[in-house]
Design a protein around this nucleic acid. Structure first.
Lengths: 268, 268
DNA sequence: CGCGAGTGTTGCTGATAGTGCAACAGTGTT
DNA sequence: AACACTGTTGCACTATCAGCAACACTCGCG
């Protein structure tokens, strides 16, 4: 159900209170609003500690209280950082337009993701207008490389060292269909490279399928992945090939503008 | 030139290291990348201190190094927060679309701003394709209420207590034309309410003019401001009325969707 | 080539800054 | 009215974090 419980004790050499503050921001990215007590319970600290952390974040506009003596939520200061971040590259902006357009055509949830260290990061998302769809907000979310269509696609075109690292580390299981055997994953990656697109059939979330195609920038390198996600009854395996054609169009449009975000994303 | 030097010693009861970390994020929102030493100088702390703060932020993906032993910049974790923030309201998304469309029509820099405590916050921005334009990225930026078109418009329609607060506090001067006399500002606000739009003629930045109109949501309340900003030679005072007509169209479109972001924005 | 000034990074140690405690002031429920 | 909550604030202790100094390294200059 909740798939992020990083209750690690924090590596030494880091600043404890800053780490806790950052975790608060993470929490507030998942839940729309939280009270002081709720935060303190989640962090495992005293209420007063959580309060002071929140008060500090509030002074810098990173969080705000919905009203006096009320819950806290993310503040508008976040916008400034987000603006500065997206201003750095055209890809984010172009990807948003691409997602919006494709979501209108396919009427399903679209994602554009990029490779980052040990995960695929969704940089853009647009939803179809169907009642049943992808509920969660995935923008900025780090999803595993071995259990999602975008993850597998990006990993298949990443550097060998990156692939080795994922293949040697234990593969976490999320559903009954999740690939957890390294050999099986290696074969899957090979197939992804051959046919030029990747899938995820209930491997990350039960009852949910996804298809991803590469976005190629100047020089032909894979700079991102464009994907569709939908309930399995609306996107069955038999329909994958049809979607791929549509996806390719969008991905080529996006790639043609050859936006780039992290030139060193493959390097380490 | 640099108009933000909040070298205040930090109020008691706040967590020092978290405050410093937040300031790092602010700095990285202004400059695209900074080294450890640069950050330490800016914060007035030792290099090792700045390093550990950055390392902690990096562990939570809020910043990242451009390469090993290199500068730091904002990380992709910021996207997650931004995604969660904008997902809370339709206004941000609709405003972006509105800005984009208007920027295409007027070929100038468009902004949508909302009222927040003691400043106007730009939640959306789109630029025309002219070479000379608004250089700075303003999204998430807090601009003064008395020296900008959006600020004056929002203030004119804010609660009386808010207006009183601004009128009694000292009005900072930014250019020769900045209104610093409370009585003069009060008269200006009255004029804004009468004619239904606000201007800023080189009051915030020399050689730059701006015009703002209200965005009215369900119930007729002013929920945001839509504005155009341009060099004074392209947007002279004589041309204001023409732009207003175009702005009104966009603002009405936007308001018709009656998005809402902060229902309690006027309360305190 | 070697110097010097710059960088990012890392143990160590003392004192400061931040934590937990307890108590207060509220609100809504029992 | 008692209770169980909430967010908030002074206080005192001690764990935490800032500063120092040294390291490894890169760059530019002589």
């Amino acid at each position: 159900m909740d798939r992020e419980r990083t209750e690690r004790p924090m590596e030494p050499g880091l600043v404890q209170s800053v780490d806790r503050a950052a975790r608060i921001l993470e929490l507030l990215s998942e839940q729309p609003a939280m009270g002081v007590s709720e935060v303190s319970r989640e962090l495992g600290v005293h209420r007063s500690t959580a309060f002071r952390l929140l008060a500090t974040l509030e002074a810098r506009n990173l969080v705000e209280q919905v009203d006096v003596r009320g819950d806290y939520r993310l503040g508008l200061g976040v916008l400034r950082m987000a603006g500065a971040l997206t201003a750095r590259s055209d890809l984010t902006r172009d990807a948003q337009a691409c997602c919006d357009e494709m979501a209108g055509r396919l009427n399903e949830t679209m994602n554009v993701s990029i490779f980052d260290a040990d995960a695929a990061v969704t940089i853009t998302q647009a939803s179809g207008d169907q009642m049943i769809g992808v509920a969660r907000q995935y923008v900025g979310q780090r999803v595993p490389l071995h259990a999602t269509s975008t993850g597998k696609l990006l990993l298949a075109h990443a550097g060998l060292s990156e692939q080795q690292r994922v293949l040697t580390a234990p593969l976490e299981r999320f559903t009954a269909s999740t690939i957890v055997e390294p050999a099986q994953l290696a074969a899957e990656l090979e197939r992804v490279r051959e046919r030029g697109w990747a899938t995820a059939v209930a491997e990350w979330e039960e009852g949910t399928n996804a298809v991803a195609v590469p976005v190629r920038g100047a020089g032909g390198a894979v700079i991102a992945a464009l994907s569709v996600t939908a309930p399995s009854y609306r996107l069955p395996e038999s329909g994958f090939e049809d979607v791929v054609a549509a996806l390719r169009e969008g991905a080529d449009d996006l790639g043609a503008r050859s936006g780039y975000l992290r030139p060193e994303s493959a390097a380490h």
